[in-house]
């Protein structure tokens, strides 16, 4: 699916990367904990998150995440937005909560970027 369709499905507002809406994205990862994103998310996925600080942008940069979707109407501050511009990472914001965001994208055929987490790595 193109980033443009993600935008339409989520009625999202593009904050950074209006010129990148024709980019193709196939998978998604939703999380508020960046260490989980680092552990499991894959290059080229979109990241759905309720966290809006610099660490989201840096995490996305490190993993070559295709784009960031901020959920439940959250906006990033100006410094964070300019960091995303510098690192050329598209950001959009949607009014939907993460539950609804993931649900709507999943219903349109977007899949998760990891299927299951092996029990061998189970925590504790």
């Amino acid at each position: 699916m193109k980033l443009r369709e993600v935008k339409e499905i989520l009625n999202a507002e593009v904050i950074v990367g209006e010129d990148k809406l024709d980019m193709e994205v196939k998978t998604a990862f939703g999380a508020d904990l960046m260490s989980d994103v680092l552990a499991f998310a894959k290059a080229g996925s979109i990241l759905l998150t309720g966290l809006t600080n610099d660490q989201v942008i840096r995490t996305a940069d490190i993993l070559d995440i295709a784009a960031i979707v901020l959920v439940r109407g959250k906006k990033a501050n100006t410094e964070t937005i300019s960091l995303a511009k510098d690192l050329k990472i598209p950001i959009m914001t949607t009014k939907y909560i993460l539950f609804e965001t993931a649900g709507r994208l999943y219903a349109k055929g977007m899949v998760g970027c990891v299927e299951k987490v092996d029990n061998a790595n189970a925590r504790n």
Partner: peptide, 17 residues
């Protein structure tokens, strides 16, 4: 669940809607 949040949410959203 062994699924990640995106996938599991997608499936539950589907069941509920």
């Amino acid at each position: 669940s062994e699924m990640n949040a995106f996938e599991l949410t997608g499936k539950i959203f589907h069941l509920l809607t």
